[in-house]
Every structure is written in C-alpha cells, then in structure tokens.
Design a protein around this nucleic acid. Structure first.
Lengths: 340, 340
DNA sequence: CTGAAAGCGCTAACAT
DNA sequence: ATGTTAGCGCTTTCAG
C-alpha cells in the first residue's frame, strides 16, 4: 500500500475519540436520523477536534453517490467559454447544485482521445452524471455516455428525435414571435443571421423565422439568411454580407446577443441607424449585451430554470426515479426595449 | 450497500474469465512490467469481452493517485473565463496533462461556502493536486489548501514572498523591456494602464514600467498611470482618462492584450493614430489580439511552458519528489510587429 | 438508539 | 511470472 497521510484522521479515529462506534459517526456525518442529540454533539466535537474530513473515495466505493457532476463541453464550442451563454449556464447549474452539496466539475474535451478518457473517468464512478452543453448533431459523446448507462442531460437537443434526456428552450416559437413582432411593426424586409446549421438550435430558430414569414405570405428565400457561429465576429461578417445582398433590409433576427452586437457594428459601419432604419432582434438577453446595446430587442431564454431543470433531470436519473418526463422544453419570452 | 450496477464487471470477474489471479489483471491494466506476453494478451481479451472499466474510487482508495487535478478559479476572476489568457492556460495545462493520463477538472469558486466545499472535495482525495489561476493577494484559498497539505501550484504569485509553489513570468523585466523599447524609439510621454493593483502581477508590471522610466530620468508620476482589470472595457475607460489628463501622451503600456485593444478603441475615438501618434504595447500576445490589432507590439508570456511547468511542479509535489525548486519564473519576450 | 461486521473493487506486499 | 492476502475508509444491514 502507498503511503497514508498520517495527518488525515479516519472515521474510526473519530469514533474512538467520541467513544462510539463507527456506524454512529457515519450517521452523524451524513445527517441521518436516529441519533440521540447528546451523542450527536459528542461526535461533532470529536470531528472538530480532529479536523476530520470524510474520504470521498471510500464513500463512493462504499456505494453512495460521487457527489459530483461533470459539465462537459467539446472543443468546437470552446469559444462558448467566452460567451455569456456559457457563463450563465455554469452559473445557473452551479446555483441549482449549491443546495444539494454536489461539486460541479467542468471538463473540456478536445480530442477523441480525451473523449474516451472522459467516459472512462465518468464510468469509473467519479461523477454521478454528465451535463452536456450544445452538442453538435454528429458528436458521438452522448451515445458513448448512454451506452455506458451514465445519467446524462443535454442542454439543447441534437435533433427533433433526441432520445437522451434534455432541456431546451422553445427556439422555434421564440423566433416566430420575434419575426411576428417585427411584421407587426411594419417591417417586411427581414433577414436572419443563423447559428451553425449543424446545431438543432440554429435550425429551429431558422424554421421559426421562415414559418412566421410564410404565414405572412412573405417567403424570404435563402439570400435573406447568412450563417454565423454565435460569435460577434461572425455576426458582423454575416450582416455585411446581407447588406451587400439586400441594401433594403429593414430588420434582422440574430442568432444570439453576441451575434446581434456584431450585426449592429456592421450596420453602423454601413451608416445605417438602429433601430430606426434597421431593427435588430437577438436571442438570449444577457446582462452583457443589455449593457452594450440597450436598445436591442431580444428573445430571452429562462437560464435559471434551465439550470434547475437540468439538475433535476440528472438527479432523477441518478436516483432512478424516472420522475416525470425526461425532456423539458421551456418557453422563451420576447423582451421589447424599444419600438422596432 | 447501495445497488450495484450489475453491468459493471470487476477486476475479479476479468481474472476469472482470463483464468488468472487478480494481481495479474491489475498489472496488465496498469501496464506494469513482469507479465508474460501471452498472459497479457489473454487478460486484454477478457477485458475487451467484458467491457471492463476500472473503478476509480476503488483505485484511489487503495492508495494510488486520483488521476485528476483541479484548476480552480475564484469568482472575481470569472471574467477571465472570456479572456484569452485563461483559455490559453487551460489549453497549455491540458496539453501538458494529456501525456500523463490525468483528467483536468475546472472548478469555479464563487462563495466562501463553495471555497470550503472545494477544499473538502480536494481533501477527500478526489484530486491529486490543485492549480490556482491568478489569485488575489487576500484570497484564503491557497492557505486553506496548504493547511490541508494538498499539492498546490499557483499561476502567478500573490507577493514577492510567495511560499506556495508557483509559476510566473518575469513581469517586471517584461514591462521594463517594453518601456526601454519605447524610450529607444524616442517616446518620452509614456503612460501605463495597470491591472488590478491588488494582484502582484499588476504591481510587478507597474514597477518595471517605473524602473525603466527612472533609469532614463523620466519619473512619470501617478497621473500617468490608470488602473484597469485586464478587460477591454477597462482599457478603454483608462485610456480615456489618461488622454484627458495628458493629451500629449505618445505611448502606453497596457496590462494585457485585451486592455490594449480597449485602449486602441479609446485612442481611435479621440482621433489619435496608432502607432504613429501614440504607440501601444500590451502584455500577453495571444492569437485573438493578434488578429484584431495586428500592429500591436506585445510582451509575450511563454504560455505553453507555463502549463508544462505547473504540471511538473504539481506532479513533483504529488510524488513528494521535491525535485528542484518549487518556484519557476519564466522569461518574457518582447514581440515587435511595427516601429513604435 | 447504537455497536459489530460484511463488504465496495482495487493495489501492493508477500508468497510461491 | 503469477496467485494469494491484507487492507484502503466508508456505508449499511443486522443484532442487540
């Protein structure tokens, strides 16, 4: 056996010190019912005196939870790291987890090798489950995890027929509402800057955009959309393209806050006024964007609820409760700041 | 005991299937020497057939490494998440770790409660060590970890008398070189936008700036410096302040790439030309900034080496090798793109 | 309400 | 070269 840390007291030592059995100490540590208050206090005292901290490896091994969940993201989405969407996701999941005493572990997966290693890590019992953020439709990771029978929850579906548990917003409805709003304000030359079209979320928003236009008998055609990747730079580039193709554009639906910010820059560079001349609506509505472009109309995703829902689904899978549906779609909300 | 996963084979089952003892299987799994090639192959086969994956909790408990290290960051530095510096750090640490088969876990620590929980998690034996990024001078976390005798390595010192193992760049020297370069180009009205002055890295860069000026007999005075926080927004604001105080400024040393980008924006807004009119030097030199402001002169930190050094120090502490110094200061390098 | 005892799956020493 | 054995520290029945 490897060296032990002689400065790390064990449950047994606490028990000896408190003059009780190990089982009792275990019960106290885990806040289990059925321990006389005086005993409980004595044990607590011994714990404090010895500076006892439970060995988590032993605890996992003995069969309880790992008390940790992983939030994994793949390399292609690495830039999400800098996006408010990701920051907000981590925050909301962290908040939801805080109450449960579960440690949140972020992992970045870049190569297939790392993908494999991560699955082994997870299968090894070091996490209770895995949260996956905005996975590409062709990413094998969710299936690898499912095959390993690991509780998994996706933020964002990979397709309309997603079988892994997921939490998503009503992207189609949100886009439809946004375009309907613009139409209601008299805009008719409405363009769209999409997200990466190999992501279902981007397809949904594009569909919502098209549906709203079709209902108004205004089919836009492919030249009215440009693909971006949620970043500001892509929004700027896409807007420039759209302006070149359609100088008469009078409104734009952008894939995200950040994309919208990029679009605004391009519009200003082209000497267009926002929103008088061209109205812009973006998805997300994060504080960052709100500060930067206060006049922006946005479609809000209920981030806090999404985090809560993800954690709820994951814990349900962990407990094998199967409590309710494994799929959650939350409503979006149009946030109007200024007449568009 | 809680439910076991009947679909998760154990070492023992592999041993039975391969017709060998558990010890042999363990040796094969851990690539230990001293196993006949034919046996090794037989065991590998059994492993594949059963889909065996080692239980990491059991492995840790039995005394070996946790095969994971945590990279922790505190809430105040949350915005670093979006900064290339942080992304680059994670990448370089990830690369250095990839060769060793150790899982990198990122953890965000927001409250004192989470700080405590994280220390318990780490003390619980779930990580071999902790990497800390740009800690504030007054953060208790490093000391909490040291007290728990957990291998810890800081990226960036908290002070000149740092006792915890660290990796840092020669910030004073880098700033001095940068200012010397500017002086050599005939610039004399040189301002500085610093990082948060409760961070040692910011103090060092400020000192380097002052030293270089003093050597040239050009003491700047406090009105020539403005404090930022490494973000672009702070750089823009600080530059505006400096311009208001000293319209005759002809060069600026910025705390980071990103800060420099903000300063450039402010300069452009004020109608100044860069670098003809005002030369700007930023720290870091990341691809992002290079793309955005190609004419920027920068002081480069050797990120890849920093990652390697952090991992090396951490593993040395883990192995109790105490191989060499626990403190590493790497040289910076002035990257000149255009005459300043 | 509490103590004793049986593992959890693995590693590392010790035999063979 | 390989099998056997003794724990690692904890949770959880099962008796008292």
């Amino acid at each position: 056996m490897g060296r032990r840390r002689p400065d790390t007291p064990t449950l047994e030592e606490v028990a000896a010190r408190a003059g009780v059995g190990r089982g009792t100490v275990s019960r106290v540590v885990n806040n289990a019912a059925g321990v006389k208050e005086s005993t409980r206090r004595a044990v607590r005292e011994a714990i404090a005196e010895l500076g006892y901290v439970p060995n988590l490896a032993a605890r996992s091994l003995a069969g309880r939870r790992a008390d940790a969940v992983a939030l994994a993201m793949t390399e292609r989405d690495w830039r999400l790291f800098g996006e408010p969407f990701f920051a907000e996701t981590v925050h909301s999941v962290g908040d939801a987890l805080a109450e449960t005493g579960v440690q949140l572990l972020l992992t970045l997966i870049r190569t297939d090798d790392e993908r494999k290693r991560f699955v082994e890590y997870a299968r090894g019992g070091r996490v209770d489950g895995v949260l996956l953020v905005s996975v590409r439709a062709d990413d094998p990771l969710p299936d690898m995890l499912a095959e390993a029978r690991l509780p998994t929850v996706l933020l964002g579906r990979r397709s309309g027929a997603e079988r892994v548990a997921y939490v998503d917003a009503d992207n189609t409805g949100g886009a439809r509402d946004a375009v309907a709003h613009l139409l209601g304000r008299g805009r008719t030359a409405i363009a769209a800057i999409t997200g990466p079209l190999d992501m279902y979320v981007a397809q949904c928003r594009l569909n919502g955009y098209r549906e709203a236009l079709e209902r108004a008998g205004l089919g836009g055609g492919p030249s009215w959309t440009a693909e971006g990747d949620f970043t500001e730079a892509s929004g700027r580039r896409a807007m420039a393209e759209l302006l070149a193709r359609h100088p008469d554009v009078d409104a734009v639906l952008a894939a995200s806050d950040t994309t919208a910010a990029g679009a605004l820059t391009a519009l200003r560079e082209a000497g267009r006024r926002v929103p008088e001349d061209v109205a812009v609506i973006g998805f997300d509505d994060f504080p960052l964007a709100r500060d930067t472009v206060p006049q922006l109309t946005t479609v809000r995703q209920p981030m806090a609820e999404m985090g809560r829902a993800m954690v709820r689904l994951l814990l349900a899978e962990t407990d094998e409760h199967r409590a309710g549906s494994r799929h959650v779609v939350l409503p979006t909300e149009l946030v109007i700041r200024e007449s568009a």
